[in-house]
Structures are given as C-alpha cells and as structure tokens.
Design a protein around this nucleic acid. Sequence first.
RNA 1: GCGCCCGUGGCUCAAUGGAUAGAGCAUCGGACUUCUAAUCCGACGGUUGUGGGUUCGAGUCCCGCCGGGCGCACCA
Length: 574
Amino acid sequence: MQIREQLEQLVGQGLSAAVADGSLALDEIPEAALERPRDTNNGDWASTVALRLAKAAKKNPREIAQIIVDHLPENGMIASCEIAGPGFINFTLAPEVFQGVIAQVRQEGADYAKGTIEGPNYINIEYVSANPTGPFHVGHGRWAALGDATARVMRHAGYKVYEENYINDHGSQMDNFGRSVVARYLQELGHDVPLPENCYAGAYVIDIAKSIIEKDGEKWVDADEEERLLNFRERAYAYELAEQHRICDTFGTTFDKWFSERTLYVKDEEGKSQVDRALAAMDERGYLYEKDGATWFKSTAFGDDKDRVLQKSNGEYTYFTSDVAYHYNKMQRGFDHLIDLWGADHHGYIARCEAMLAAWGYPGALEVMLGQLVNLFRNGEPVRMSKRTGEMVTFEELIEEVGVDSTRWLMLSRGADQTIDFDIEVAKKKDASNPVYYVQYAHARICSILRKAAPAELAAKAEAGEISMEELVAQVLPAEIDLSVLIDPSEIALARKIETLHDFVQLAARDRAAFRMTHFCQDLAGLFHGFYTNCHVNVEDEKLRNARLALCDATRIVLSLGLGLLGISAPEKM
RNA sequence: GCGCCCGUGGCUCAAUGGAUAGAGCAUCGGACUUCUAAUCCGACGGUUGUGGGUUCGAGUCCCGCCGGGCGCACCA
C-alpha cells in the first residue's frame, strides 16, 4: 500500500473514533484531504481536513485538528504530528518509512511507482499525424516528444495506452505533391515546365525527382500523364513515409499503429467503406441533412458554431469526413477514451470533432490536447530558415545539431499550453544552463560511485558495458542491508523525494502534464548532488557504506525511470 | 467582430483552491591533494498585467478591462 493510502486510513480512523465518541458532530466521515506541504518545515504530509470541517462541525479548525490528533490510532509511521497555522495537521514520518522506500525501489526497479487505474482505461492517443509530403518541422518534433512522454507517463500510472500516428495520405495535397515531383523531374531533364499551383517548392522534391531519374532515366518524359503522376506520387509518398519512420526511430518515438487515411475509403466485402459506415451511423441518429447539393453534419446540435459539410456538392468528401470516419473507426476498435494531440492553430476544429462523437452517443469520449507552437531562436535571434538549405529548419536538422536528449528536455520542460521559444545555442550548451545534463550528470555520478565500490575487475566490465549496473550492484551489495543508519538530513531528503514519484506520476498522467516529470528529475538530481557533498559514500564503516550504496542505487533507479518517462537516456558516464 | 491559449523577480519556468509565491539561468561572493567541480554553499532579486467578485483561504475559480500569440472554408 502506498504511504498516502496508509495515512488516509489513519486519519480516517481518527475521524471515525472522534465521531463515535461524540467529540465531533458530523453526518458523514469526510476525506482525509492529504497534501504535501511545499515547505518541508511543515512536515512530510499535511491534512487540511480540519479547515474544511470548520463550518459543518461548528468549531474552530485548530480545535478540530486537536480532536483528530487525539483520536489517531497507535502506529509506527508517524514520528510526530503538530497543528499549525489556521488548522493544518502536519505529519512527520518516521525514518523507517523512508528506509522502507529505498528497499522497495531496489526491489521493484523500473516498475517502482507504477499505478493502477480503476474503471475503463483503454486510451488511444494520436499524435504527430503529418502529411507525408515533406520533412517534419520543429512543431512535429514537439508533438512527438509530448505525445510520446504523455503515453509513457500514463502507462506508468496504470492506463492501457495505444499510440497512433495518422497518415494524411488521401487528400488533394497528395496530388499536388505528385505534380511537384513531375515538374521537378522534367525540369531536371532540361524541360522548361512551370511549377504547378500549390506546389511543394522544397529542395527535397528535387532530390526525389533526381532519385527517379537515377533509376528510370528519361522513360517518364513522354509517358501517359495520368500514369506518370500516379507513379511519382506513390514513390514520393513511400519515400516521405520512410523518412518519417526513420526520424521517429531516431527520436525514440514509436507508435503501435500508423493509420493510413486512405484505408477509410476502401470498400469492404459488403461494398461499404468506413466513411460509409460512419456517415450511416450519423444518419441513423438523424444528424445528417442535404442542402445546396451537399451533405451536412448538424454539429450545431452539440455546440458547434455552424454545421459542417461532409460531402461537397461536387460529390467529393471534405477533409473533415476523413476525421469523422477515423474517429468512428477508433471507437469501433474498443477504446474507452480518445486523445488527439494537435497544434494550437487547429483549436477551431475541436468543437466539430467533439460534436461528431456526441452524435454517435459518445459525448466526452474525445479529449483534444493542444500544444502551443515552437519558435526557433539562435542566440536570441529568431530563426526561420536553415542556413544549409535556405528553407524551413527541419526537425531532423534540429536534433542533429542539438541532440535528442536535450531537444526532448526542452520540448518537455514546460506545459503544452506554453509557447516554446527554443534557442538552439542554449540547447546545445553542455553546462549548468541546460538542466538535462545536470540530471544526467547525477545519474552518471552515481554509476561512477557504484563502480568505485566494486572490485576493479567488475568495475572495468561495467565501464565497458559488459555487465549492467544491476548486475554490478547485485555483486557488490548483500541481500540484507540495514538501512537504519541513514539518518542524515540529506539522506532522508533524498529518500523523501523518491517517495513522491508515485504522486508525480499520478498527477502528471491525470493532467496530461508530462512536463512535471522534468521538475521531479531536476529536484531529485539536486538532492542527490547535495547528499554527495554532505555524505561520503565509500566509507570504511561497512554498514554505513552499504546503506549509502543502497540509497545511491535507489536514486539511480528512480532517475533512470524518471528520465525514461520522458524518453531521455540515463548515461552511466559522461 | 467572435472563439481558444498565455501574462508570476533582469531571463526561462514552477506552484492537485492552502501556510512566508518556489527553482534554474544571469549577476556578485565563497568551496576541489578525498567516491566525476557538468558539483556544492551563500547573497541579490516579487504589489503574481489590471479592476471587481466568490470563501475560512485566490497566482489558481467567475466577470470586466489592458497587452501578446493563434484561429474563424463546400482547403488539407
């Protein structure tokens, strides 16, 4: 049982006892209302229940607090509790509690602080979802980092998470892309043809055209135009999709499914596409109508500003129709809840999407996470164009120059609804101005200490990567360690921080706020550096040494876990 | 015009409605013959844009202003 739950139980018992013997006149037993005081001078945990009860119990909150404290059962957890301020009950936990935490972390490893979620919790999270018509830009990188970290955090908190990337491979932009390749192909072969309207002007299109020339030479110059367009479009699509996969791999973002928009239009054995089925489901419930030769969705029935066209008067479907079919498809696949991660410039799209889910009878099933935009800077100056290509800086260029870990940290270290001013030169600095290295350094420092504690031969193996830190530690430390010697304030502070991970994960998951994990990692690293300064680990006294090594090991596990939830590596040396 | 997001020390950001609003950077001053100084300790720095309201309590919730960003297609 988590410490929080144990405390809740104790406070609950205290309240019940007070009510039972008439000290408190209450109709029902309230929640324990536990929180962590920001200031550790106010103890490890605090209850505000007395403040909340003042009205109902018709008593001064401090008086109520005293009654509750007097009725608390005997226990080994709480070292002391005091009533403070207007009526807070502050608990200071016994050192044994934190010593227990260290043992628990070392036993559970990367599973430490995993939670369970009651009720329906099968989540589909969709993010990135770019057009396969060009390279990822910096914004896609933010969605990749954010979606990935959110999924990791939610999974650790106990949700079942399915990650999905929607490929916009259906609309007219695909033909524009194909036409652009055709034009570049002909131009490269010396033909004077203009670029088409709405064309993709980037140099990467020329590269694709060149690769076609390399393979097929001039054979397409006089080919059937339709056939040529189709061929080039598909080759260009395949190329860009492969690029997207490659960059996601490099960045450490993996999806359970890459969902092709086109598949929504494929007829099944009954002659019906998923678009047909989604629209039929809307029609059944009476939310489709015809006007001006077009088919409309009555989204205003669910709070949208205006109704939306699904099938245009020329018979084509709108982009929105794909999303209708896609979201219908997701619900049919059995998810309890859908999360879409979009750029903030799409916020106007939310109402109609929520409306369609409501139209099928799934109100509230869709949650849209908006991510604000990323502005690039270099030494404080705005950067729009890449020096190398003269075009928009791509995400790949960014991670090449800055590195994956630093990029992820900067993208994740603030809330999704904060605009990010990303300064490339700051991100590249490997010093104190870049917290990711501060955290990684703490991890590397611990690994170094653990190696120092091991026989030279073992340490050398660990350094060469032949054995893992787990294997090394298992050989250095005995199975039974007496942790009661860990009483230094910086030792307790470190263990206390580790114990907060469970809450951090739960809150970060609930609020979809993965960025909180960066704060956790930074705080934990800071406390470790403090401990390192105050307490020498590899001391003569074997009992103390082993206990401190165990504390180091637990910190290492949790740092690695915390960084892992952000998709950031935990290096064993720097 | 309507809608969404954001205004917190010089800078970048925190703060499940709780206590004296916290970190980091920058600036200044200290600490390495000892397990990694990519570190640590200290100092300086604030009327949380603004005016009301809600309550035991508001940076946080509600309303109005001011300032900044983004969006308002039978485009994708």
